[in-house]
Structures are given as C-alpha cells and as structure tokens.
Write a protein that binds this DNA or RNA. Structure first.
Lengths: 246, 246
DNA sequence: CAGTGGTCTAGACCACTGT
DNA sequence: CAGTGGTCTAGACCACTGT
C-alpha cells in the first residue's frame, strides 16, 4: 500500500530520468499536475516536496519549478545500512568480524549509550567490503541489552542491521553522525590494505531506535579512494548520500 | 513577515531548548498543539515537519512524537556561506586571496559550468580562517559571466557570497557537494600551516542560481582538526551541518 | 478500544514572477 | 496583468499504537 503522493513522486522522478523534463526546464504548474493525476493540489505538493528534498527540483514563490538534476540521490536508506546501500548500487556487500569482546562501559560509552558506567558492553571490530574489496573498518560498541543478539551473529554476516531486525525486530530509526578525516593508523592500514597515513573518511555515529533509545555507537573509517559522501542542498533543504568512487 | 508555521516551529525549538520538553519525552498531540496555537492541524504539521527534518523529533504513525535531541542543527544556511556559518558560531570569518588569474576553460570547467571550452574563466585560490586561524583552502573557478564581479572584490573580503549579492543581486541557491578525505599536498600544508600528508576533509562543490545556472565550482579543503560535518538522519530524512572542533 | 499521526480533499487568500 | 507557488482552513477517513 503506497500512498498516492509517493506514486506521483515516483512517476515524476522517472519522467525526469527519461528526460521528459530535461535539466533546466520547467515542471508543469501544481494545478496542472493535480488535474493530470486526478488529485488535490495538496497531494501534488507532498509529491514535489520529496523531489525538492532530494535536490532534483528547485522552487520559489511565483515562478514555476525548475528541474535541477536528473540523477537521483538515494537519501538515507543506504546510509542506514552498508549492505542495503551496496545492494542498491548493484555491488555485493561483504563483512568479516576481526574481534569481538566484552569490556566494562567507560564513562564515554555510558553517556553515549545511556547506561551505567561499568556495565559490560560488546566491542566489535568489523571489516566491510564491496565485491570482496575492503573499504570500511567499523569499530562498534553495542548497548548491553542488544549485545547478546549481536554476539550470536556469525562472523561473516553481510548485513548486521538486517539480521538484528529478523532476530529481534530491532529497527535502526535515527542516527547522529559526525564526519571528518583522519590518517590511517597501523591497524587501519593493515586491515584495509592501504599504506599508513593514507587519508580516511571517518564517520562517528550513534544510532537509536524509533523510541529514541541508543543502540550502538561506532567509529567507521572509509577508504577515501573507494567511498565519498554527496550532499544536495538548497536554501531550505539538504540531503546526504554515500557514493562510490567513479 | 514570518509564516505562522515558522513561528510555531521556533516556539517548539525554544521549548525543547528550555527543556520544557526533555529528550526522550513525548510532544503534545497535533490536535492539542493546534488548539493551543489557534491554528489548523495542517499548520502544526508544517511546523513539526521542520523539527523532524532537523532531527530534533521523531515520529511514527499511531504514536506521539518523541523528542530526540535538544541541540539544534543549523541545517543549510551556514553550509552555503563560510562567513555566515562562522558568524552564527560567534566566530570571526577571515579571508585572503592568494592568487587570482584567468585561464581558458578546460573541458571539465566547461561541463561543470555549462559554457564553451576555451572561454576565459577566473581561478581564485583563497585561504579562509576562523578568528585569524587558517582552516580552509578554497580553489574556485567562476563562470565567465560572474568573473568580472569577483575579480573586483578586495583580497581580504570576509564574505564573497555577501559581496556578490550586494554588488550583483546574485543568490547562491543550490549546491551539489561531494565529500571525501585527502592528504595535504605541499601547497596545502604551507598555506594551512600544517604538516604535509595531514588528513584534510575535501568538499568539491558546484553552486547554482535559483534558475539552476552554474555559478562556480570549487575544491575546498578543511583542516580536519578544526572542522567536521554533522548529519542527523532518520528513515525518511537527513540534514547536514558544518561543525567546529569541540 | 480510544488516541494518534498519515493521507487527502476543496476551497481561500496572498506574495511574487514574468511578460 | 494573469499565472504561480506559499500559506492556511476545516473537514474526512484510515493504519497504527498502546493500554
């Protein structure tokens, strides 16, 4: 059951991809689109708002909407899970656990995961790859209440997110990410097959449930020659996506 | 003249900042908010959609909205202009042009700026700082039609965006950014006062007008110890912001 | 089950654009 | 000036949540 406004958004995206509306041209007026799709103006506005958020079209009061780009930014779905993103790109996600052990929660762990210092939490070091090529190193700390479920996952599981959803119903709903750059350390270089001091794109993140409860926090390091992030933005809006090297 | 839904969004943000609604607690129902502010449900939905986009609150059908965070992400305004962002942080933006010269547009320039190869375009190398400390190196190529206006700006102008708006009415409306990490080269290291091979956060971007016309493209390199990017996201939405080192 | 957010309608008025 | 997108209303129905 997809909503009508999502169907319309999809049809417009495809029309832009097919170059029925070319980059730089004007989209039909809201009232025309409403008549064409047999819906009210409000529903059309919901649909075009999605395309605007993706950076495909721009708008300003009084003038018709402009088509800005034809390539679709895949927004968040693929940022949420490395495996989902890889699949959407037509590449195979691989994963391998290097080490997995319990440590008492430090003060930092306790603050980020909203639990008491000293609670045993699971630390996992995971190498992730695209078509077998290592591109990402994840150093993740899981909250105590989810640690047992994570511990029982096999070492080469391709999608931990998917597995946790199947096993426990857990959904990763919200994330807070900080992106910067670091030099590869000895372990980074070794596991990613690159030279020491190579530049890496680092993403430190905290993921929470739908209810706002922290599940994990992680230091993720991407090989900068393999992955980048792209951002569309406008005065009102912006959208982030993960990209592979061209 | 601010719209009512923006006023309500502001009041809700402030209430969350004041901890009238604490992180993890539930927001009042839409109908209650509508009654409280004397508006229709649609207007309340427009207001809370803004907070959702900023990552402050989460929502799902059937359950009340959850407060996820109290710190506001400043979304795009400060990403658009380095100077505007610095000012919003209470820091002083500085700028200095290192070199400025015309070159015939390469094929890459021509594609990105939508003009003919060989057209003379202005290349500007600019060091930008926070409170006098250099943190960003911009290598920018301007389209031919705006180059003369850029050329006449004084070398230590703090906000080129602001100046171009005042002089020509030009508004930077949309941007496409690609973020990755690189090692500092000799010139990077020299101008930013860091060691060679230090990791830098690189942002390559194309900026366009409201009509979708490309204005400039740039290779921006940030000192990773001084600036990072933060992203809030959810299943439906995400928002990027620039952050200084803590 | 009552309450809640998601979707959708059909109308209205206004600020802004572009000719 | 006519046309357009931005704002807002007052109603309706439904899927989902939580007790």
């Amino acid at each position: 059951m997809t909503a009508r406004h999502e169907e319309i958004a999809d049809e417009l995206r495809q029309a832009i991809d097919r170059e029925e509306y070319t980059v730089g041209s004007l989209l039909p007026a809201e009232t025309d689109l409403a008549a064409r799709y047999g819906v009210s103006r409000g529903t059309v506005r919901q649909a075009v708002a999605a395309l605007t958020a993706e950076g495909l079209i721009g708008s300003r009061q009084g003038a018709r909407r402009v088509v800005l780009a034809s390539r679709r930014s895949q927004s968040f779905a693929e940022l949420r899970s490395f495996a989902q993103w890889a699949n959407a790109m037509g590449r195979e996600a691989t994963g391998h656990v290097v080490s997995q052990e319990y440590h008492p929660a430090t003060k930092e762990d306790a603050v980020r995961l909203q639990l008491s210092a000293g609670t045993p939490v699971l630390h996992v070091l995971r190498v992730r790859g695209l078509d077998g090529e290592p591109v990402l190193l994840e150093r993740t700390v899981y909250a105590d209440w989810i640690s047992p479920a994570v511990e029982s996952i096999e070492a080469d599981c391709a999608s931990v997110t998917q597995r946790l959803y199947e096993d426990t119903g857990l959904v990763f709903a919200y994330g807070e990410h900080v992106i910067d750059a670091v030099s590869a350390g000895a372990q980074d270089a070794d596991l990613l097959g690159i030279r020491r001091t190579s530049p890496l794109l680092r993403v430190r993140r905290v993921t929470t449930t739908r209810e706002g409860r922290p599940v994990e926090w992680s230091d993720d390091r991407y090989r900068s020659d393999a992955v980048s992030f792209s951002v569309h933005n406008s005065i009102d809006n912006n959208a982030l996506a993960r990209k592979t090297a061209d």
